[in-house]
């Protein structure tokens, strides 16, 4: 497993916790917060992608 895969796996685990456990109540406060959470997650993925390939 290379570095990119390790980081992806870590992010995946974090995302699972945020999406599929009761923690999801945190991003369910307002009508727009699910979208804010979603776009944040996409931004993190894009950032990771950028740093993976910058390295």
């Amino acid at each position: 497993m290379n570095r990119e895969q390790e980081r992806a796996l870590l992010l995946f685990a974090v995302a699972i916790v945020l999406i599929a456990t009761p923690v999801r109540a945190v991003w369910l406060q307002t009508w727009w917060s699910p979208f804010a959470f979603w776009i944040s997650m996409i931004a993190v993925v894009a950032l990771l992608h950028r740093t993976d390939h910058a390295a």
Binding site: M1, E4, Q5, R7, A8, L9, L11, F12, A15, I16, I19, L28, P34, W38, M41, I42, V45
Partner: peptide, 19 residues
């Protein structure tokens, strides 16, 4: 917002792309 699950699953899947 359960309808978002249909797309959150895809987002999770995309995070899993490298492995």
């Amino acid at each position: 917002y359960d309808f978002l699950a249909i797309y959150f699953g895809v987002t999770l899947s995309c995070i899993a792309i490298p492995f």
